[in-house]
Amino acid sequence: MVTLDTSSRPVRRAASPTKRQARTAWGLTAPALTLMLLILLVPVAVAGLLSFTNYSLGNSGFDWVGIQNYERLFTRSTYAKMFIATFTYVVTVVPISVGLGLGAALVVNSMGRIGDIYKTIYFLPVMATLLAMAIAWEFMLHPSIGAVNRTLEMGCGTWLETLPFFAKGCADGFPLWLGDRDYAIWVICFIGIWQGFGFNMVLYLAGLTSVHRELYHAAEMDGAKTGWERFRLVTWPALGPTTVFVVTISCIRAFQVFDTIEAFWPQGGGPNKSAYVMMFAIFEKGIQQNLIGIGSAITMLFLVFVMFLTLIQRWLVERKVHYG
């Protein structure tokens, strides 16, 4: 009996465990795979297909319209405004929020325990519901009773009036902010930075903890005398991977700006469409106006941007900044 057992078992085991493990593995991944397919991949395909049609919800059929939707995106002035608004936002918010995040992280990091208070404060906007804070900002920026203009008015009659901005504001009233097409997109950018830089700061702070302290001592011994030289020689290269990540995630978040714009201008995307960003365009065209074709085309374009950015990030991480 004993000999039979030991001789027959290994044979059965050798064949089955790998197979059995494979079967279990597929079983364990099946729900995730199915959902991934249905929720992420199929919609991308659907959007891709619909972007070549004039489909509307409620209609029984649709026609293939070729690249007409994409053509419109690149010819109509509305969409030109959309691209301008989106890129203005991204190009403004990303560098400033990353720069401020890095600056704040460096200063906070150099202060020891007291710095934690600032860390907490700067992180608050990240946690807060953006929509609620957008409404709070809307009140702050109210042309007549908002805190911003009230504070600015206090500057009237002081030396500040020598500045052109104040001179004009005190004479003709300060800007309408959200109602002014020259200011609207910049206000949106400001709120984006206000909300996002604390997040970048925290990422940088995490990055800074991984910088080996002895490297600073080595730099000092090697003759790096100024803080800037040490930053260039040690801190900045060590933060390379963090920077790549922070820039990418800031870009992706910036591309997705929506809450503030919808809260301020439920219709139309700001004065003269000056804040008509892509997410809002998808919402307005695709959902509100039921122009699924054009909405899908914007969606596809949007995906291309985001994927392109992420691929650049991965390439950078793998090629340049990864030292192993």
Binding site: E220, G223, Y323
Partner: peptide, 30 residues
């Protein structure tokens, strides 16, 4: 006198090499 002006060389326990620089660049830093 600060460390960088004392004209001393130091070898650290963790070696403290700059990870983004090549060996030649590391040696050239001082």
């Amino acid at each position: 006198t600060r460390a960088s002006d004392r004209n001393l060389s130091m070898v650290f326990q963790s070696y403290a090499l700059y990870p983004h620089l090549t060996v030649a660049e590391n040696i050239a830093v001082p």
